[in-house]
Structure formats: C-alpha cells, structure tokens
Simulated scan of single mutants.
Amino acid sequence: MNWSTNAWEHIKPIYNSIVKMPFITELREGTLPVEKFQFYMAQDSHYLEHFGRSLAIIASRIQEVTDMLAFIKFAEGAIVVENALHESYFKEFNLTGKGNMQPACHHYVHSLKSTATLASVEVAVAAVLPCFWIYREVGTFIYENQNTAANPYKKWIDTYAGDDFDVLVKQAIEIADRLASKCTTAQQQAMTDAFCTSSHLEFQFWDAAYTLRTWEDSL
C-alpha cells in the first residue's frame, strides 16, 4: 500500500463527516443561504492567498526540479486562477470585500505556513494535500448527487469536479507518494499526521462558514 492510500484511510471518517455536514448538503441542493456562501467565499479568498504562499515556500525547498515546477504551478493556480473565480463570485453574490480573516481560516493558514517553513518538505507536501484531494472528492460527490439543474453554486461545483482540477490533484498525490517512498516509517507517520491535521481543518473551515463563526463568538 502506498502512502497516499494509507493516509486517505486515516481521514475517511473526517471526509465522511464533511460530505454529511449541513454546508455541503445545502450547497449540493442549492439551498445554502447566501450569507453563508458569502462568508465562505470571503474567508476562502484570504485562505487562497496564504495557501498560494505555502505552496511557493514548498516549491523553493523541494529538490526535484519537476516537482518544484509543479508546486510553482500550483501556487500560481491558487493565487491567480482561483482568485479570478472568486472575483466573479464577489460580483455575482454582491460581496464588496473579504473583510477580516476569522478564526478557522486564521488557524488553517498559519498551520500551513508554519509547516511549509519549519517542517520537512515531505511533511509540508502532506499538509497541503487535503486542500487538493478533499476538494476534488467533495466537488465530485456534489456533482454526482445534484438534484437540481438550477443550482446557484453550479460554477463552484463544476470547478472542483472538473478534469483540469483532477489533473492537478493526481499530480500532487503522485509527488507526495514519491517523497514518502524515500522516507522512514517515522517520517511517513509525520506526513500522515500533517495530512490528518489539515483534513480536520478543512472540516472546521466549512463548519465555521455555516455557523458564521467570528472572533466575537469566542469572547
């Protein structure tokens, strides 16, 4: 069993919880309240900027040139391509700005950036992988289980269920497996731990959007 297959087995309960959570269910049905999607998009705009920076840090540290180029492309996609998608959503859903970064997003991006900077590059690659892999799986799940042709969130669904994104996800998984194949058992476990942590944070990100969780809620 390669590393990625084993890692996915570890986070299956998290993924199963994600596809059952209200945010995903209502996104699939097209009934998600607009204010919750607005909150999500604003926070995701913050997230993508810092996710792109994390990917760029990894690109600067990774040794194999082809993998370095792949992570440069990933970073560009996060910052340029997906921000363009967000800009169109900002107009469509009447968002005038992204506001402040809220707790779930703050926790996630700082976890990624510190891991990308301070952990081994193998662990860093594992930490950013859930954002690729889980989004593809969720996008595909929603696409295959839609019950309306007039879903206002169709563009979002089509992006993450699309072939172009699938190619990037497969490439990221292959890089992680290649790096893991050269690691000790202990190093592979550290990769899995980072993968699991980021998967938990993916759940928290969507849950925070559904509950509109802000810093004031913790006071």
Rank of each mutant, 00 (worst) to 15 (best):
2 N>H: 06
3 W>M: 12
4 S>Y: 13
5 T>S: 15
6 N>F: 01
6 N>E: 13
9 E>H: 13
9 E>S: 14
10 H>V: 10
12 K>I: 05
13 P>C: 13
13 P>W: 08
14 I>E: 08
17 S>Y: 03
18 I>Y: 00
20 K>G: 04
26 E>R: 12
27 L>P: 02
27 L>H: 03
29 E>H: 03
32 L>A: 03
35 E>Q: 13
37 F>I: 06
39 F>S: 11
40 Y>T: 09
40 Y>I: 09
40 Y>R: 08
42 A>H: 02
43 Q>M: 05
44 D>M: 00
44 D>V: 00
45 S>K: 04
45 S>G: 13
46 H>S: 03
46 H>T: 02
47 Y>N: 02
47 Y>R: 01
48 L>A: 04
50 H>I: 10
51 F>N: 11
52 G>N: 01
53 R>W: 09
55 L>K: 07
55 L>S: 13
55 L>D: 10
56 A>S: 15
61 R>L: 05
63 Q>Y: 04
65 V>Y: 03
66 T>V: 14
67 D>K: 08
69 L>K: 13
70 A>H: 09
70 A>T: 14
70 A>E: 12
73 K>I: 07
75 A>Q: 09
76 E>K: 14
76 E>W: 06
77 G>H: 07
80 V>G: 07
81 V>S: 05
84 A>G: 03
84 A>T: 10
86 H>W: 00
86 H>C: 02
87 E>K: 12
88 S>C: 01
89 Y>L: 12
90 F>M: 08
91 K>I: 07
92 E>S: 13
92 E>K: 15
92 E>I: 02
94 N>V: 12
101 M>V: 11
101 M>H: 01
105 C>Y: 00
106 H>E: 14
106 H>L: 09
110 H>I: 04
113 K>D: 14
113 K>W: 10
115 T>C: 14
117 T>L: 12
120 S>C: 02
120 S>D: 15
122 E>M: 03
122 E>W: 01
124 A>H: 10
125 V>G: 03
125 V>K: 04
130 P>M: 10
130 P>Q: 12
132 F>T: 07
132 F>V: 06
132 F>R: 03
140 T>M: 07
140 T>N: 09
141 F>V: 05
143 Y>L: 10
144 E>C: 01
144 E>F: 01
145 N>W: 03
146 Q>P: 02
146 Q>S: 10
148 T>W: 01
149 A>R: 10
149 A>C: 04
150 A>R: 12
150 A>V: 11
150 A>C: 05
151 N>H: 05
157 I>W: 00
157 I>K: 00
159 T>C: 14
159 T>W: 09
164 D>P: 06
168 L>E: 14
172 A>K: 04
174 E>W: 03
176 A>S: 12
177 D>L: 11
178 R>N: 14
180 A>G: 09
180 A>M: 08
181 S>H: 04
183 C>A: 15
184 T>C: 10
185 T>D: 15
189 Q>V: 05
189 Q>M: 14
191 M>H: 06
191 M>L: 07
194 A>R: 07
194 A>D: 05
201 L>W: 12
204 Q>A: 10
207 D>Y: 04
209 A>D: 06
209 A>R: 06
210 Y>S: 04
212 L>S: 09
212 L>P: 02
212 L>F: 02
213 R>C: 12
215 W>L: 11
215 W>I: 13
215 W>E: 15
217 D>S: 15
218 S>N: 10
218 S>D: 14
218 S>Q: 11
